Simulated assay, not measured.
Amino acid sequence: MEALTGLSVVVIVVVIFLLIIFFYFVPIGLYITAYFSGVKMRIFRDLIGMRLRKVSPQVIVRNMISAAKADIHLESGLLEAHYLAGGNVTKVVNALISANKANLDLQFQKAAAIDLAGRDVLEAVKMSVLPKVIETPMVAAVAKDGIQLKAIARITVRANLERLVGGATEATILARVGEGIVSTIGSSKSHKEVLENPDNISKVVLSKGLDAGTAFEILSIDIADVDVGTNIGAILQADQAEADLKVARAKAEERRAAAVALEQEMNAEVARMRAKVVEAEAEIPRAIAEAFRNGNLGVMDYYNLKNIQADTDMRASIAKPTEKKEKDKNG
């Protein structure tokens, strides 16, 4: 009797285990839900096959039911392929439902490609219906009169589903709009023109087609704020004047150094000439002595020479005070 009881317990455990395995591989409840929702699923080929292919039947069937209720007919094979590729089946189906309700032309292949590209396809559909406003950081630019202006713009964009795969992101839109603002302000003759008509910036920037190659369509560009910055022109002129002054000082110093060098060279030349004169004067006594020995110079000739020299020295001593007085007057 005890052996029979033990055998019964083992049989019950085995039956329960087999039932768990059966209902795991054969989701009867999910099949019934799909049947009454109008989604045709085959137990062995579809539901059990999903288990064997390591695909969650709950995810596939429930999303097919949601699509069917929105009058969107999807094949289970497409959803399975997207699931196995690592995509988010639920977001793709919800994006298709939202696009269908908003009368947007979005096919499953496009939505799956957007999702596999790493973008939020559901958020993209929502942005197509409800545009998003992006605010640029403060952009500084200088008008032709040298006055700096600082502007902030608000860009209203809508997702372009056709260009969402491979299209540039919001950062590209912000960079292009900032470049357009700088170019428009820089081409203005006066900063007053920009302050009087800030909408001109929006019109010029919007006409450049800055959304080309991006995942968005620019609907409008509005200048939110424009502030006057520093006088860049005056600062540049002051810096240029300071630079010119330094150049002039350097050139003047160069001329002064050249003049000093020339003066020193002339003084050296004068010193050399004086040395030659002194050397020549030193030869005079020798020449006189030589003339005496050769008989070319007599005693009377020598005394006459001395008298002439004394007369020259006297005249020179008389002329020195007069030259000093004239120098004092001129000085």
Results as ranks from 00 to 15, higher is better:
164 L>R: 11
164 L>T: 13
164 L>N: 04
165 V>S: 02
165 V>I: 15
165 V>A: 01
166 G>V: 08
166 G>D: 05
166 G>F: 05
166 G>C: 07
167 G>F: 03
167 G>W: 04
167 G>S: 06
168 A>Y: 10
168 A>W: 05
169 T>H: 07
169 T>E: 12
169 T>I: 03
169 T>C: 02
170 E>M: 11
170 E>R: 05
170 E>V: 14
171 A>Y: 06
171 A>K: 13
171 A>F: 10
171 A>C: 04
171 A>I: 13
172 T>A: 14
172 T>P: 01
172 T>E: 14
172 T>R: 10
173 I>M: 01
173 I>H: 05
173 I>E: 00
174 L>K: 11
174 L>H: 00
175 A>W: 08
175 A>C: 00
175 A>S: 12
175 A>K: 10
175 A>L: 10
175 A>F: 10
175 A>D: 12
175 A>E: 12
176 R>T: 04
176 R>C: 05
176 R>N: 11
176 R>V: 06
176 R>Y: 07
178 G>T: 01
178 G>N: 03
178 G>W: 02
178 G>F: 03
179 E>S: 14
179 E>T: 15
179 E>W: 14
179 E>N: 11
180 G>Y: 13
180 G>H: 12
181 I>Y: 01
181 I>R: 04
181 I>G: 03
181 I>T: 03
182 V>D: 06
182 V>G: 09
183 S>N: 15
183 S>G: 13
183 S>D: 15
183 S>T: 14
184 T>H: 07
184 T>F: 10
184 T>Q: 13
185 I>F: 05
185 I>Q: 05
185 I>Y: 06
185 I>H: 04
186 G>M: 02
186 G>W: 01
186 G>E: 14
186 G>A: 09
186 G>Q: 01
187 S>W: 01
187 S>T: 00
187 S>P: 00
187 S>D: 12
187 S>F: 02
188 S>T: 09
188 S>F: 03
188 S>Y: 02
188 S>E: 08
188 S>W: 01
188 S>G: 02
189 K>A: 09
189 K>L: 12
190 S>C: 07
190 S>D: 09
190 S>F: 09
191 H>G: 06
191 H>S: 14
191 H>C: 12
192 K>I: 11
192 K>T: 05
192 K>G: 00
192 K>R: 09
192 K>Q: 11
192 K>V: 14
193 E>R: 07
193 E>A: 07
193 E>G: 08
194 V>A: 09
194 V>D: 10
194 V>P: 09
194 V>N: 05
194 V>C: 08
194 V>T: 13
194 V>K: 03
194 V>S: 09
195 L>M: 15
195 L>Q: 08
195 L>R: 04
196 E>C: 03
196 E>K: 13
197 N>Q: 12
197 N>T: 08
197 N>Y: 08
197 N>W: 04
197 N>A: 05
198 P>V: 10
198 P>M: 11
198 P>K: 07
198 P>N: 09
198 P>C: 07
199 D>E: 15
199 D>C: 02
199 D>I: 14
199 D>V: 15
200 N>W: 08
200 N>F: 11
200 N>C: 01
200 N>G: 11
201 I>W: 04
202 S>I: 09
202 S>E: 09
202 S>H: 02
202 S>G: 15
203 K>P: 01
203 K>D: 11
203 K>V: 12
203 K>L: 14
203 K>S: 13
